[in-house]
Design a protein around this nucleic acid. Structure first.
Lengths: 361, 361
DNA sequence: CCGGTTTATTAAACCGGTTCAGGAGGCAGA
DNA sequence: TCTGCCTCCTGAACCGGTTTAATAAACCGG
């Protein structure tokens, strides 16, 4: 019955088993397996061969204990589930992270907490249990207290985007500003002179950044602009749109949104009110989710490569943990993808048609 | 400078520090902290107080090594990023999982791999490194070889849905069938006699189950039905819709989709061809993503409580690991949410309007 | 006051790796 | 032949918990 016990489970070989089989000490096996100098090449090859033959692989727990590293990185999601569910960012980001982590022998520990003070507790727990060597700090907020917290916990970290305060951590950034400027340019060229922006919470740095870019781009082009703030949800995107569109006299001819979910909800509100997109109203999203290409009218949006972002963030965090470089990384800027939902501004302010009653046509 | 070393980092107290401070042995501290019987109550309270005062918390690595458990559960995502990105299921599922795991002192290890053979490798790695005590097996496929693999790796597991083969693991299921039957019922009541279904890959058990429910519901009601198979992506949802709608003579009066992304893309295709939803064509999704409520026309869909599903799956997996119950769990069935995208069938087959050329209105 | 049981506690082994001080052996130079 | 210096390898300590066997102390009925 070989080395199978009663329960049918095989006892995994340990480094001691490999050592015994190879007729050397545990320590030497460890050296050989970690490619440390001072091991005779022939011996090393023999040990490696035997380890492979026995199907040995290191127990990350034991390794963690002795090296005082966890070989795992943490990501704490602290968004409302409805918002994170509609957001294409995280799955793509995670795929990119994983692409780097997996070959590096690292794992990703994901924690999901409702927004609020429980997030701090989660970071604290991750650190005190020594689950992870470092964390990704996403969804940066204004004056984000997580920076100090994570530093005090002794964790390595990388921030997604530049914090608005002094940060001890490297950042990995995709610049939204260009994309937003390009959007305003695009609309201005189409003749729009009154543009609104439906922003995410200004507590969130990326929302604020998009909004600031929007406002300064408008100012620079003599465009009349207006901003409404939301929580990023489709619901509030719809509500903001209703407010913007309600008064035909002050109605903007184009609306940009801080994400695609809100833009899609906004398009629906406009259509429901009998407005034609883009003939009466141009609308643009942000993030370029997959569905943006497939709705009708297809949605003009700003695309960022979240997979690449995840990969770059993972590389930066691994480097920080290894005590290597600490430079900030700037990825290719977000770029505008023009589709059907933006078009020429209505020829005159008086051209808006009488609102029809809401009915699915 | 108290117990702070040069680098400003505080040395975490270990169980030995607590023992020394309390004047007892390491072992006794361990007993006290794990609520084991045979410890004097007064002593136990004193140890607990001292541990709390010193800010001690267990190092999960050390604990893992001695107890031979990892205190972590794994989830392997093996979907294409474009598909997982548009799918509201996982973020919600993960939130539910986390809700149970966190209080239980467990962590979630997430691995994301491209679809294909690399998934097996990932499970193998998770097991051989001893990263996790058990895994969630999601997106069950026909004759899913992961069951045997995971069992041979000695991992505990729970499947999301019932496998089509003998399974050594408990399952946690939300029954889709009722929701699909309700959808067909709803459409049949509205007078639809020719209904199509755009299915996900029939390799995927949940897609197949929805499709089978669709077909048998149609058969039971004398409804003419047709099924097109896709990979769940918005792109293929759009393509399938184009095929279904192309020939006005054989065009169905209603289409159901195996997820909301495809349904949204399908609605767009119909609108683009000048068809009115639901006047000319009723369309229904599946999964009830948040955005379904906010598009125009709002999308009839089938809702499952993914958060609850995650929580139940986590409980089941924890129970399995603890060697407790092994019963399957059946959650509240998916339910139909009727919105604007479904309506009465067109009065006669000849009523379909001449297709207009595609233009954003 | 004694033998036996229960309760509270300790010391040490153990989990599976890493790391470090040192030792054996070979070789070169004096 | 002695010394010094490599190279290759060993043995043991160590990481921070858990667990077990052994022991000391308290208790208890007769």
């Amino acid at each position: 019955m070989s080395d199978t016990s009663r329960e049918g489970r095989v006892r995994r070989p340990t480094i001691a088993d490999v050592a015994a089989r190879a007729g050397v000490s545990k320590g030497l096996v460890s050296f050989a397996l970690n490619d440390r100098p001072g091991v005779n090449v022939a011996t090393r090859d023999r040990i490696l061969a035997i380890a492979a033959e026995m199907g040995w692989s290191p127990d990350v727990r034991a390794r963690s204990l002795s090296t005082n590293r966890s070989f795992a990185l943490g990501l704490v999601l602290q968004r409302d589930t409805a918002i994170v569910a509609g957001d294409p960012f995280f799955p793509a980001f995670i795929a990119g992270v994983e692409r780097e982590l997996s070959p590096a022998g690292q794992a990703l520990v994901l924690a999901s907490v409702p927004p609020g003070p429980r997030a701090a507790e989660t970071y604290r727990k991750l650190a005190s249990e020594r689950r992870v060597d470092g964390v990704f700090i996403s969804d940066l907020r204004a004056n984000d207290e997580r920076l100090a917290l994570v530093q005090s916990l002794g964790l390595a970290a990388v921030t997604l985007g530049h914090p608005d305060i002094e940060s001890p951590f490297p950042s990995v950034t995709v610049d939204d500003v260009d994309g937003m400027i390009a959007t305003v340019d695009h609309l201005a060229e189409l003749g729009h002179r009154r543009i609104a922006h439906v922003s995410g919470s200004s507590e969130m740095l990326h929302a604020r950044r998009r909004r600031d870019a929007f406002e300064s781009a408008c100012a620079g082009r003599g465009v009349d602009c207006r901003v409404l703030e939301t929580d990023f949800s489709a619901r509030q995107g719809a509500e903001a749109t209703t407010v913007l569109v309600a008064d035909a006299a002050t109605r903007p001819t184009a609306i940009t949104y801080s994400n695609d979910q809100m833009a899609l909800a906004g398009v629906a509100v406009a259509q429901r009110m009998g407005l034609s997109v883009p003939a009466d109203l141009s609308m643009a999203g942000f993030d370029d989710s997959d569905i943006a290409r497939y709705v009708y009218p297809s949605l003009t949006s700003v695309a960022t490569d979240a997979v690449e972002w995840g990969a770059a963030a993972a590389r930066a965090l691994l480097a920080a943990i290894a005590g290597l470089g600490f430079e900030d990384t700037e990825l290719a800027p977000a770029r505008l993808v023009v589709r059907e939902s933006t078009g020429p501004a209505p020829s005159s302010a008086s051209s808006h048609p009488p609102p029809r009653t809401a009915r699915a046509r």
